Amino acid sequence: MKRKKFKYLSSRVTWLIAACAACFLLYLAAWTAVAVREERHMALVLAGFFLFAAAAAVFWRWIRRPYLENSRALRLFCTGYTMNGLFSQRTALSPEMEDAVRKIQEIMNTDKLISATKKQAQYLALQNQINPHFLYNALEGIRGETLSAGLESVAKMTEALSTFFRYTISGSENLVTLEDELANIRNYYIIQRYRFGEKLNLSVEYDADHESEIMSYCLPKLTLQPIVENAIYHGIERIIGEGRLRIKIEVTTRRLIITVSDNGIGMTEERLREINSRLGDMTLDYINPEKESHGGIAVVNVNNRIKLLFGEEYGICMYSTQNVGTDVEITLPLIQKDGRGTYEK
């Protein structure tokens, strides 16, 4: 859709300044012609050109360049590419614009916005509509009855489901230990095994010599489960034969890297580029339910929550080969919980 240029104040100011500069140059040109013909006032003509050049340099340095920087930051923000540039501008367009940007930054830093991506829609629905204690008590009652009837497999599944929901629904902390997150994944795996049976297998790999240290690192709650679920339903479920899920945990001097791999159907290069493009953008469009799509939305939600909490240098990247499998690489800062219950890098 073509925009009307003169609808915007910036276009009007630009054309007005350009017109004034053109008029001044025409005046200088006429004055120069007279001075050359009469061979006098040349010093004044040179002073006029010097004044014009100085004014142009000041205009470019103090007005035009800061304006272009602000416009570029706003354009990138609107396309979802970055948010940091919006908050780091040295020169604001106006006091009102500075206040508006500050207000956006305050909203971005609130727990309310972070929690918008904390859980998938189904978890939020459960949290809003089901009394957690009623759910736990009902599941415990079912488990007790099945144990009495000798149905140990059903009792085991019910226990896993109860523990999974307790972890998913309860608590308000943004960060949990890797040990707790993996325990939730194992409960989720137990539940899925009752559906897929021997077709589904999970392995977790890490340096056993540093297990206690690795398990104490923290990450956003419900980081792994949506990605594991995505791997099962969009990858492994569609293949014939054994489905293998692998969670590999690596620690560098500054980062915690978790890779969730599957041997599912993978995806095309075009689809992979599309998802990685969305993962590279810092956008809030996913909060609008009308814009959600089934493919990849879980990964996008997790990625955006990581970036909101830790910064744009962290997040998710996907690698995939069609009919071979998919790797989802999660990069996080090294954060541990100290004895006082606070978090430190």
Rank of each mutant, 00 (worst) to 15 (best):
D281V: 01
A54I: 09
N303V: 04
N128V: 09
V260C: 05
L224K: 06
R166T: 12
G325W: 07
G141K: 10
Q120W: 08
R61M: 05
P95K: 03
T32V: 03
L272N: 01
D285S: 13
K112D: 07
E242N: 09
K291N: 15
C78R: 11
M97F: 08
V101F: 05
K345P: 15
L16E: 02
I130L: 15
G241K: 02
S203K: 12
R65L: 12
R305I: 10
R90K: 14
L256E: 06
Y206N: 00
D327R: 14
M108H: 12
V300E: 10
I227A: 09
A155C: 05
I275A: 03
L86Q: 07
I191W: 05
Q336F: 11
R195H: 11
V300Y: 03
T91A: 09
W31T: 04
I258S: 04
T252W: 02
I297V: 12
S88A: 11
K112Q: 06
S153D: 12
G311P: 00
R246K: 08
A54H: 04
R102F: 09
N187V: 00
D209K: 13
M157W: 04
A55M: 09
S88T: 14
E205N: 12
S88G: 06
K221S: 06
Y167Q: 02
R143I: 01
E181F: 08
S153T: 10
R3T: 14
F49H: 07
F165P: 01
V204Y: 00
K221Y: 02
S162M: 15
N84L: 11
Q127S: 14
A47P: 01
V13S: 10
T146M: 14
G80V: 02
L182V: 08
G48N: 07
V260G: 01
R254N: 15
S320M: 04
A92C: 06
A208V: 14
A43D: 08
L74D: 04
P132Y: 10
E290M: 12
E329R: 14
N184K: 07
A30W: 11
M1H: 08
E96P: 01
W15I: 11
F59Q: 10
